[in-house]
Amino acid sequence: MPTIDATRGPDGTVAVTPDGTTSTGYSDAGTALPDPLTTLALSGDPGAELAALAVQSGEAEDAVAQEARDTEVAIEVREDARQVDAMHKKAGDIRTAGIWEGVGMAVEGVAGVLAVIPASNRVADAVKLGGKAANGGAIIASTFYKATEADDDALADAAKSASDLAKGAADDLGDARKSAGDLISAALDFYREYTSAQAAANTAALHRA
């Protein structure tokens, strides 16, 4: 009955990790002996080997799904940060566009006030015209920042979409982890039934002998 690798010691050093899986191979620095799953897989008992392989497969599937989910979560976090950055940049563009527009208006206004000073109408009109032209230039400059605001909005929307996609993928990978868990459960169920049947057969054989 190849159930437990007793050589591992009964002191709690069995390869059961906090996430409910068992460790594989010889990776633990202080473990010189193979873990129970490996022992089971090499035991020569076909039922045990099948169960061990199924458990290992489930563990591998779970590890892959976990890693992929972590990647998707990282993408989601990154895209969320990009969305927020774009919104902050838009705030900066709103402020800059407002400054250009305000300064343009102020310059035109100052020109309107200064136009009172010259005795010559020609000079006064020239000052006014200069003020208008300055305001026009400022409006054109502010238009650049308003266009950038639109770009920021588009960037934020794109980042939000990418974040939603990553979130959906992460949720799907959560389902994949559940599938991996189901596979391990099925393997354990199988092994439980297998050992029961085998024990019954052994008992019958002993009685017969």
Partner: peptide, 13 residues
């Protein structure tokens, strides 16, 4: 009007 525009510009900022 120019003075008012200066005020409006400052308020706009």
């Amino acid at each position: 009007g120019g003075g008012a525009e200066v005020v409006a510009g400052g308020a706009h900022v």
